[in-house]
């Protein structure tokens, strides 16, 4: 069990290390990505406010990038 866990952790780091080769955009080329229209979830608080009502009305939750908790909605 420990071995499997360790293997998994090492695998994540191997993949992450390999991703160093996926440095597709250099730091000085990121002006376009710093533009507010290019940031995903640029304002998480505002996103949460806009989606607040959905928790009351739909049966699904999760994988939106917003943090929730406390309202007993789900």
């Amino acid at each position: 069990m420990k071995g499997k866990y360790l293997f998994g952790v090492v695998l994540i780091f191997i993949l992450a290390g390999l991703l160093d080769g996926c440095a597709t955009v250099k730091p000085w080329e990121k002006e376009s990505l710093a533009d507010p229209i290019m940031i995903i979830n640029e304002n998480p608080i505002e996103t949460g406010m806009k989606e607040h009502h959905i928790d009351y009305r739909e049966g699904s939750t999760g994988a939106t990038g917003a943090q929730s908790g406390g309202c007993g909605c789900g």
Binding site: A16, L19, D20, C22, A23, Q67
Partner: peptide, 15 residues
């Protein structure tokens, strides 16, 4: 990772 081109986030919530 990768000169900030990649990010991995893990989170938990306990209520």
């Amino acid at each position: 990772f990768a000169e900030n081109n990649t990010s991995l986030q893990i989170g938990f919530v306990k209520s």
